[in-house]
Design a binder for these strands. Structure first.
Length: 269
DNA sequence: CATCTTGTTACGTT
DNA sequence: AAACGTAACAAGAT
C-alpha cells in the first residue's frame, strides 16, 4: 500500500506511545523482514527504553528510543502500523510488537516485503542520514531532478519516477498521477524532455506530493474525486478531463495507466 | 484455477 | 563502470 503520504499516516499511528517505556517485545524473528536485524541485541536492549520520536523520509521510517536505539521500518507493499490494547496477542502477520503499559505498538505485514532495521549509537544510523532529500523539503532542488533524469535518460519516465534514489516516496499510483497532470506519456525516455516539459513535471511532482500529504496523511482518506487516482485501477477507468478510456501497459515492471489524449507519445526527433 | 497487486533487490545483460 | 530489464520474494483478493 504505502507511498509517501500513507507512510506518514502510519508513522503517526504510533504517536500515542511517545514518552513511554517499552516493557516487552514480541517478534517473528525468523521472517525475512528481520534479515538485517541482530534480533538477540534487539530483545536485550529494547525493554526499558523510552520511545522518543519518529520521522518519515520518502517510504522510510525511523523511530528513536532512549539509550541510542534506532528502529527503522520500511512498510513494503502491505505493511501497516497500528495500536492495540496492552494485552494484545499477536497473530500470524503481526511480526513486531512493542508493549507499553498503556498500549501495544504493532507492525503487521502479510506479504513480508517490508523490512526492519535496528541500530545502536548516539547519532541516527548511516542508512538514514544518506537518504536522498525528501521531495517535500526545500532541499530537493530542480537540478537534482534534471540531473537524475539525465543519468537515466534511456528509462521510460514512469520507470525513472519509481526509482527511490531520485524520487523518494513516489510509488505506482503517484507516478501515474504525476505524469497525467504533466501531460507526459509514461513511455517517454527520461532524457527526452524539453524545458517546458521539465517544468511541467517539476510542478506536477510537487502538486501531487503536497496534495497527497494534505488529503491522505491525516486520516488515510482518498484524494479529491478529480484525481486520476480514482480512475487508474478498474478497467472502466476514464480520463477525468475527457471521460474517454485509458491506455494500460506494464512499464517499469508495474501496471501503468494513462490518457492517450492528454499524454500522447512525443514525435521522434 | 489463473491472474492481479500502491515495493525492492539480486542478477544477468547492454 | 553504469545503466537497464526482469525474475523473485509471499500471501491474499478477485
Amino acid at each position: 500500500m504505502p507511498e509517501l503520504a500513507e507512510v506518514e499516516y502510519y508513522r503517526r499511528r504510533w504517536d500515542d506511545g511517545r514518552g513511554d517505556i517499552i516493557i516487552d517485545t514480541a517478534l517473528h524473528s525468523q521472517k525475512r523482514i528481520f534479515r538485517r536485524v541482530d534480533v538477540k541485541q534487539f530483545r536485550k536492549l529494547m525493554p526499558g527504553s523510552t520511545f522518543l520520536r519518529s520521522e518519515a523520509s520518502g517510504k522510510q521510517l525511523l523511530f528513536s528510543f532512549s539509550g541510542g536505539l534506532w528502529l527503522g521500518i520500511h512498510l513494503g507493499m502491505t505493511g501497516e502500523l497500528r495500536m492495540e490494547a496492552p494485552d494484545f496477542k499477536p497473530l500470524r502477520h503481526d511480526h513486531l510488537v512493542l508493549f507499553q503499559q498503556q498500549r501495544a505498538l504493532v507492525f503487521n505485514d502479510p506479504r513480508l516485503f517490508g523490512q526492519i532495521r535496528f541500530n545502536v549509537g548516539p547519532e541516527p544510523p548511516g542508512w538514514w542520514s544518506s537518504l536522498p532529500h525528501s521531495i517535500i523539503s526545500a532541499n530537493f532542488k530542480r537540478h537534482h531532478m534534471d540531473a537524475f533524469l539525465a543519468r537515466h535518460r534511456k528509462r521510460p519516465l514512469k520507470a525513472a519516477l519509481l526509482l527511490q534514489d531520485g524520487f523518494p516516496g513516489i510509488g505506482n499510483w503517484m507516478a501515474d498521477e504525476i505524469l497525467w497532470r504533466a501531460g507526459l506519456n509514461p513511455l517517454t525516455p527520461a532524457g527526452r524532455l524539453n524545458a517546458s516539459q521539465l517544468q511541467k513535471l517539476w510542478r506536477s511532482l510537487h502538486y501531487v506530493c503536497r496534495g497527497a500529504m494534505r488529503h491522505i496523511s491525516p486520516d488515510h482518506s482518498d484524494p479529491p474525486a478529480s484525481w486520476f487516482f480514482h480512475q487508474r485501477w478498474g478497467p472502466g477507468g476514464t480520463c477525468p478531463i475527457h471521460r474517454k478510456g485509458l491506455s494500460r501497459q506494464t512499464v517499469g515492471g508495474r501496471t501503468t495507466a494513462w490518457c492517450p489524449i492528454c499524454q500522447s507519445f512525443p514525435p521522434p526527433k
